[in-house]
Design a binder for these strands. Structure first.
Lengths: 228, 228
DNA sequence: TCGTACACCGTACGTCGTACGCTGTACTAT
DNA sequence: ATAGTACAGCGTACGACGTACGGTGTACGA
């Protein structure tokens, strides 16, 4: 018996807001967001259901905290790089984080108040763009555009019915193609056939659109700002 | 008493898969997706909770059907226009539909099998791009990019804490700005201040990124395909 | 007249979030 | 040593949820 626990099951005694939120994320990652119910979360922590409410005011607040941890995991754009590679690094990191935590995407829709990590991250992005010579409104445009792309890509990626490239090829050939009446959907069919044949990599698909957007944004900077 | 109803409360007697799904959408639009529970839906239809299961196998299937109706509301790219305006129309229509039905965005993440309207829509998009001279893989790239932008924009728009432009100005000045420590978040602050001053229109914000992406895609078509 | 199919419903089970009030421990002031 | 107070955690209970199961009345063909 550990010195700390004063009664019954200890289970690495001593909860904390951190431990609660992290365990909730672990559960949501592996079981889906419904797997992270208050009761199951408590059980996973070796505690009673109501104990959680000492560290989190409500389920809503827990979800907000989980989202903010996700933002913690997204690298801000590094300051010592040209703006394109800086933003590319941040976007890539964001996609990875959202792929790791697919439940976060669906959550963003209902949740409106940004947490501190979220704010810090946005500040870093705004700083990067402004210092690269974008005007205030241009920075806002660029942020909307880039964020839309990242979130939308993550959303689509999360709704793909497979996890790995091999699974795709297998599924495309075995399930998808036979179900697609070729006469009714000729273009979808040719596309699915090509995909099944060539394999498919979400990471490089993501890079394609990202580079295209970054390049299109480049000429919208003010000429000769300060650094970079 | 209408001739059709054989017992008790009629409530425009005669359910149907259509009526069920549309009422569910109406409820979700006005009360959020949680407002469209099976019981509340049944109540709104003047029926008992279990009656719904005669038209829909499960809640999951109901949600799938709702999503497919949303795709019904998105105009496919018209065939008689150049590819850019065709795709612009479709994207604009998609944004509008998703703004009308914000619950649909969060749903896409969990739901993997596309309904018939979804398939028809994707086919029309693929057809438009292929006929505009994009190669098979280029069409796929363009679709991913454009869809990512549309979905991501809708996701961000749905998580905005206000509905109208006036609300934004009011909120920016009254709530947002005072909460943002100017020393800690100088760039966010200047951005919020500019937004509060100038007003903000989601529709034109959407158009900005969309036009930029469409223009960036233009040179990726094969030279001299067939029409257009 | 009977039988069968259909449309619909009531009840019940297990789950959920959480309000409320109770425990036992630790620490502080006397 | 004693009393008081704060903290951490729990048990129970309530109303909502999705839905399995087994009705029950009406309509209609034979």
């Amino acid at each position: 018996m550990s010195a700390k626990s004063h009664r019954s099951a200890d289970a690495a005694a001593g909860l904390s807001q951190q431990r609660v939120v992290l365990e909730a994320m672990r559960l949501a990652d592996s079981e889906g967001i419904d797997g992270a119910s208050m009761r199951k979360l408590a059980a996973a922590l070796g505690a009673g259901a109501m104990s959680i409410y000492h560290y989190v005011a409500s389920r809503e607040e827990l979800l907000d905290a989980m989202i903010d941890v996700v933002f913690t995991e997204i690298d801000p754009p590094p300051v010592d790089r040209d703006w394109q590679s800086a933003m590319r690094l941040r976007a890539t990191s964001a996609r990875a984080a959202l792929a790791r935590h697919p439940w976060a995407i669906g959550l963003m829709e209902s949740r409106t108040t940004p947490g501190p990590a979220n704010l810090r991250h946005r500040e870093a992005v705004a700083s990067c763009l402004r210092n690269a010579g974008f005007s205030i409104v241009m920075s806002a445009h660029a942020t909307w555009l880039l964020d839309s792309y990242v979130y939308g890509f993550a959303l689509q990626e999360a709704s793909l019915p497979f996890e790995t490239v091999d699974e795709l090829s297998a599924m495309a050939d075995a399930v998808y193609l036979p179900q697609l009446p070729q006469e009714e959907f000729p273009y979808l069919y040719e596309s699915a056939a090509a995909l099944g044949a060539s394999g498919y990599d979400p990471a490089s698909e993501f890079a394609f659109g990202l580079d295209l957007v970054l390049a299109a944004l480049e000429p919208l900077r003010d000429s000769a700002p300060r650094g970079s």
